[in-house]
Design a binder for these strands. Structure first.
Length: 407
RNA sequence: GGAGAGGUACCGAAGCGGUCAAACGGGACAGGCUGUAAACCUGUUGGCGCAAGCCUUCGGAGGUUCGAAUCCUCCCCUCUCCA
């Protein structure tokens, strides 16, 4: 396989564009000059197969590198996944069975294929070599790293300082990761900037066993919809690439204006000229950030669902949130009267799952957040007779309710 | 192994015998405003009940007391220092 006609220097530019760190350019250039496709490793966590926009930053880079003719290797950390990770931030990380990992890997593959050519990529599992590795050999490998070095990682350092427990196995994971690079003979490894230390550590370990060090390429971490924390499913600030169009559109619209430039920077694509134009206007203080946000949201939906879906998502959003009108499609719920002359509105709220308990439903009503056919419900004791109604809770939850006569 | 500090609601964190369904902050939800599900302001935030009230909750299990998140015993878990 031949690498595309680009010169090593031109290729370097592709690697470098938008990167948070690249260690080191000289080594990368040397590798590129050999003219052979590079083996580019990217590690994935099999316990979280749902990809979000934060992953997209890295995946887009992988795609660009793949288009240069390099070999992308997805490493699924099934071995690590089976050990589990009961401490620290990811305390809910489950211990996965073989079947679950296999299933997650499939999900993962399907999602990745929306961004790049999976057929051209290599998918590997680290149990392949980790299960062969003996304890003595692994401990020997560990002797090549130091605790101080591991503590350089932000996450560890902060937890150590603030007294949050760090499991010993968490210290071992970077070593496993390093060994993965050795086993795969990785030329380059990609990751988010939180992975920087790990990728550098792998370089040292590779060298210590006489292997050429991988180039460590990290990309900025995208902040989530809260505008502060990095995007992560467990923080609830993520926009998934398989989320429904309305979700992608709406969640994007909810990001604070302050990180809008950042999102444009990290998620934007050259062909999104109208986004660039609006961004320029906003930068100059002329445009309305709302419009820029809308344009970006539209493009993101379009990217994963096509332009029809993007139009529909935009329409729905404008209708619901700008003009405060009811959507034309809403869940339908049928309720049978159980006797008596009517059914309390509070019960409709719980039936529609707009309130988790009757108490919550009453609070909603008391706050003026409940409407029936557009008219505010003013009493917690309000009842409804058989018929059809549109029930609304808050600004955006709607349901069509059909109350039937008792049988 | 020794010494000390802790484990509280979705999260962080106060409370240290009754007035505690538990301050405060974040999150979430609702209302207002708006340029938007942004920002800002206001409110709500265990369950059942129209209500009075009842039930469940402060790491776990027992105990003391009219009464326990608060006191005692044992257990589990975490952190810090020393070895």
């Amino acid at each position: 396989m031949q690498v595309s006609g680009r010169t090593p220097e031109e290729q370097l530019e592709v690697f470098r564009k938008g990167a948070a760190a690249l260690a080191s350019e000289e080594e990368l250039l040397a590798k590129l000059r050999r003219g052979k496709p590079l083996r580019i490793k990217y590690g994935c966590d099999p316990s979280r197969p749902d990809l979000h926009l934060g992953h997209l930053v890295v995946l887009d880079k992988l795609r660009a590198l793949q288009e240069l003719g390099h070999r992308i290797i997805f490493l699924i950390g099934d071995f690590t996944g089976r050990i589990g990770d009961p401490t620290g931030r990811s305390r809910t990380r489950p211990i996965l069975s073989r079947e679950e990992i296999e299933r997650n890997a499939q999900t993962y593959r399907a999602q990745v294929s929306r961004v790049l050519d999976v057929g051209q990529a290599e998918i590997r599992f680290n149990s392949e070599w980790m299960e062969q590795l003996g304890v003595s050999e692994f401990i020997g490998l560990c002797s090549r790293a130091t605790v101080a070095r591991l503590l350089e990682r932000d996450d560890f350092r902060n937890r150590y300082r603030s007294g949050v427990p760090i499991g010993l196995h968490e210290f071992l994971y970077p070593m496993v990761q390093a060994y993965d690079s050795i086993a795969l003979e990785a030329d380059v490894e990609l990751g988010g900037s939180d992975q920087h230390i790990n990728l550098l550590l792998a370089r040292e370990i590779q060298r210590s066993v006489g292997q050429e060090a991988q180039v460590a390429l990290t990309l900025p971490l995208l902040e989530g919809t809260d505008g502060v924390e990095k995007m992560s499913k467990s923080l609830g600030n993520a926009v998934g690439i398989t989320d429904p169009p309305d979700e992608i559109y709406g969640r994007t619209m909810s990001i604070p204006d302050t990180i809008l430039p950042r999102w444009c920077e990290l998620l934007g694509r050259p062909e999104w000229s109208e986004v660039d134009a609006l961004r320029k206007q906003v930068d100059e203080g002329r445009g309305n950030p709302r419009d820029l946000k809308g344009a970006l949201a539209r493009r993101l939906v379009e990217r994963f669902w096509g332009s029809d879906a993007a139009n529909a998502a935009e329409d729905r959003f404008d209708r619901l949130f700008r003009r405060h009108e009811a959507p034309d499609d809403m869940p339908e719920i049928e309720v049978a009267l159980s006797g008596g002359e009517g059914i309390p509105v509070v019960d409709l709220l719980t039936r529609a799952e707009f309130a988790a308990s009757r108490g919550e439903g009453k609070r909603l009503i008391a706050q003026g957040g409940v409407r029936l056919d557009g008219k505010p419900v003013d009493s917690a004791e309000a009842q409804v007779e058989p018929g059809q109604y549109v029930l609304q809770a808050g600004k955006r939850r709607f349901a069509r309710i059909r109350v039937r006569e008792p049988i």
